[in-house]
Design a protein around this nucleic acid. Structure first.
Lengths: 367, 367
DNA sequence: AACGTTTTCGCAAACGTTTGCATAACAAAA
DNA sequence: TTTTGTTATGCAAACGTTTGCGAAAACGTT
């Protein structure tokens, strides 16, 4: 069957471009060579070949060399499904993220792909769509699929972590970005609190005294941390904390940002700066301010969080906290693979904090 | 070993939250039930169980029901590595895209993931980073990894398609977005030419007569097609074609868009509209026009292509061609899986054109 | 009752690899 | 020479599934 398919394809190719005859040569090696064939060719046993290739100490140097040489010549590649089947290792990593379309997420994924592929792993990606149940399903199928480990960024509202705990008990799992203290595993995060602190302090340094914050309602690990940073910055600079300008919203977004800005503008005592916990919200704020001809940053300065692609598109350009997604991805993968390849009996739950960078643009500081 | 790991994890969990004892129950079923066990339990042979589960016609209805019932009770899941190993099927799809960070790409990937998962496949994603060699490597590793089929969007400058042809000869391959006529396989694309035609016609309908285009230098399938649409629109409306306002650039981008706009502004006879083949370039154009206080769309209108996330962020908002990425992804996957599951001896190279939609915003038409 | 036909099922091999155990070869110690 | 000890290699089982082939059971037809 395959052979026929091959021939037909070939005909078609040849028909299109008669000069492409070279492809025929290449197609000969349609069958990956196996240990058995190598063994027969060298007149030794399969097990010896296997061990030689895996540098087993029992095999003599001379045999190893012979075997490796032949294997190279025939560019032998082990059948991953046979070995995975036998050894219960697949060399596949699973990644679950809430939304693959967020720019920040894609930078993390880039890092994951790069580092993972470097270390010899393939990566399966899934979206939980911020859906608790979907997330459980993904976890489930990934496990029964046999991934060697899982990288997980929690969906927005994860109520129960039972299934995640179950996963943690079966295979290595590393969390990043959206994490939860309830799950004992290594977690790669940014210094949320400090980043927010720095952002707010920057506003204070530019002379702002009445700084509003737009955050998520609750239950969001990241939002809470950033809010803590906000509070600490105000306290340490002896600024009053006014609940009127502390706004919370569910599923924070551009539209919500705009709405919150409208609320803030209608206040008797307007803020002179707005710190939005999210770039999208910050952009909504800017749009609202622009609409009402509020000058940015003079009347009201704006700072966001994430350094999304849009932050340089909006006008004025948005000051924001840069999260090094690539580094986060690479780091998470490294820890995950380490857990896979060097399984410890004792559970060590590290938390790795990646440093962020405040990027000052026109929305908070004009030269 | 696993057991120890389990116990340790458990201890740790218990230590954190003593109430979570329930997880212990769940952890019991650490071993997936096998065909052999089902067979023993029913006192029938393994092969009968296997065939019953796979709805083989040789098996009686009553037996099938018995088997399926028991399988469900023990929530049996086939060991994918055993069956993949045996049947040379992995139920994994490979996707190779130039850049995972482009918004359009992520929408395609969303579609691929959704539809693929629906149909029982996992998806491995890789980035070619617009690197010819990387792309070959990815293709290579994916094949030796054993994916059942490959979804491919060509990297920007793919010189040789030999290795792709080789892949086509081995396993099903479907191309999307960035395709090449040199490769005999089914291709899922948008109606590039028509989309561009519509965009330009829209500009003509709003009264524009001197419409510039910013495109890629050459060799880009998409760019050529869009250019053809541009030319046809002008011709069919009896407008002159002026090479002075046909600008080409390599690796088109926001910066390049800005540069091209500057060139166009310096012309004695300025255009009254600019059609950029890419949203990013169009946004660059808008930035340049804004800088020089050129009123949009009155003096110069702008239309882009892709409906990227930023097109509503920029001000004025960008008129652009919406490419239904999700649909493209879903369609491509459907065709790919069909090829996988119903292999034809004869090669049929379909081309599926997905309809696009012109989205009119402020940059081309003011209410 | 003897014989076909169809339906339903089991046996056993195969997929490519890893690995415990046995064994061969050989040298050194008894 | 026999024993003991290394070192190097081979045998064969196992992982869980699919599948060609053969056979038993069931049924109908002369």
């Amino acid at each position: 069957m395959l052979c026929k398919r091959l021939r037909k394809r070939l005909q078609s190719v040849l028909f299109l471009k008669p000069t492409l005859y070279v492809t025929f040569e290449n197609m000969k090696k349609k069958h990956n060579i196996t240990l058995k064939e190598l063994a027969k060719s060298l007149n030794i046993s399969i097990s010896t070949v296997s061990r030689a290739l895996n540098d087993h100490p029992d095999i003599s140097q001379s045999t190893k060399e012979k075997v490796k040489k032949l294997a190279n010549e025939h560019n032998y590649v082990p059948n991953l499904f046979a070995s995975g089947f036998r050894s219960h290792r697949t060399h596949i990593l699973g990644v679950i993220v809430p939304n693959i379309s967020h720019y920040f997420t894609t930078t993390v994924l880039k890092g994951v792909l790069e580092e993972g592929e470097n270390l010899g792993y393939r990566v399966i990606i899934s979206e939980s769509k911020n859906d608790d149940k979907k997330q459980s399903e993904m976890l489930q199928t990934m496990m029964q699929f046999g991934v060697d480990g899982v990288l997980l960024a929690l969906s927005r509202k994860t109520k129960s972590v039972d299934d995640i705990l179950q996963t943690v008990n079966r295979i290595p799992l590393v969390m990043f970005d959206k994490v939860s203290g309830k799950i004992p595993c290594t977690q790669v995060v940014i210094n949320e609190e400090e980043a927010a602190y720095n952002a707010v302090e920057h506003l204070i340094n530019t002379g702002k005294r009445r700084i509003a914050i737009i955050k998520e309602t609750e239950g969001s690990f990241n939002s809470e941390k950033r809010f803590e940073g906000y509070l600490r910055a105000l306290k340490e600079h002896n600024l009053p904390i006014d609940e009127k300008i502390i706004l919370s919203t569910e599923d924070i977004s551009l539209t919500k940002g705009r709405m919150m800005a409208n609320i803030l503008l209608s206040l008797k005592k307007r803020p002179d700066a707005i710190f939005a916990i999210t770039d999208s919200a910050a952009i909504g704020v800017i749009k609202a301010l622009n609409k009402f001809k509020v000058s940015i940053p003079d009347e009201i300065a704006v700072v966001g969080f994430s350094n999304s692609a849009s932050s340089t598109i909006i006008s004025p350009s948005l000051s924001t906290v840069d999260q090094p997604g690539n580094k986060i991805g690479r780091t998470a993968v490294k820890y995950l693979i380490d857990e896979i390849e060097n399984p410890k009996e004792d559970l060590i739950t590290k938390t790795i904090e990646i440093k962020t960078n405040l990027i000052v643009r026109d929305s908070s500081f004009k030269v």
